[in-house]
């Protein structure tokens, strides 16, 4: 209850700040030097936030579609031998630093949002894939036995039993990917993608801590809010299934 109240306060605060950053000028003034401006105004903070969110949403959506499809594929009877291969591919996606993906893809894709999208997409695959595989392979055996026993065919078992039961687990994977992508998207601004990273980079270039703080704060708050919303979705989905949730 307290948590929910806090979340609403945070969300309202964030919205106000993004729409009317100049209202908070006094707060950031102490972090500036030599009469530098306290609030970043070159690009509207609202526009940066929205395009940051849009970039993350597109990347996570694409990761989700590919990773869940891949997870389903390798947990089917015919796809089981591809499980190690798919694991390797997804892990490699996770180990290549996003900066390297940006550096490698700019020559091919040019500057802007596209290389960032690619980096976020690759980076987001692994958590969703791993959670989908875990969710689909750790289903209660007697429920699966019953699903076969009542005469559901494979496709029906997948859609009406296995995926609904694995749903909370898959959702947890999407939450992880989203939070990671929110933070990682900032580096996209090094190659001119319109994200909140722009504010941070401007701060670093002009030695203006107030800018760095603003950019970091907005990204951090969004991450916390999205994390909490996803968590409560997972909890209610799991409660509906009668699973005992820790925490």
């Amino acid at each position: 209850m307290v948590g929910r109240f806090l979340l609403i306060v945070l969300t309202l605060g964030l919205c106000t700040f993004v729409v009317r950053p100049e209202m908070f000028e006094a707060v950031f003034q102490p972090f500036t030097q030599n009469d530098a401006p306290a609030i970043y105004t070159q690009t509207s903070l609202l526009r940066l936030t929205l395009s940051h969110l849009a970039l993350v949403a597109c990347a996570v959506l694409a990761s989700t579609i590919i990773a869940v499809a891949l997870g389903i594929l390798v947990t089917r009877e015919f796809g089981r031998e591809f499980l190690p291969l798919a694991r390797t591919i997804a892990s490699v996606g996770q180990t290549i630093p996003p900066v390297a993906v940006l550096a490698l893809s700019v020559p091919m894709m040019g500057f802007g949002a596209a290389p960032t999208l690619l980096a976020l997409f690759l980076y987001g695959l692994l958590p969703i894939f791993e959670n989908t595989v875990t969710g689909l392979t750790n289903l209660p055996p007697n429920v699966i036995e019953a699903a076969r026993g009542v005469g559901l065919i494979r496709r029906q078992r997948l859609w009406s039993v296995e995926l609904p039961l694995a749903f909370p687990m898959i959702l947890a994977g999407i939450r992880l990917s989203t939070v990671i992508s929110l933070a990682t998207a900032t580096i996209g601004s090094t190659i001119a993608a319109p994200t909140l990273g722009e504010v941070i980079i401007a701060g670093l270039l002009t030695s203006n801590s107030a800018y760095v703080l603003q950019g970091g704060l907005v990204v951090g708050l969004i991450a916390i809010i999205i994390y909490e919303v996803f968590s409560s979705l997972e909890h209610s989905a799991a409660r509906r299934l009668g699973f005992q949730m820790d925490a």
Binding site: E145, A146, L165, R240, L241
Partner: peptide
């Protein structure tokens, strides 16, 4: 079956 195997969802 044992443990009923009802669909929990």
């Amino acid at each position: 079956i044992q443990g009923h195997g009802l669909f929990p969802h």
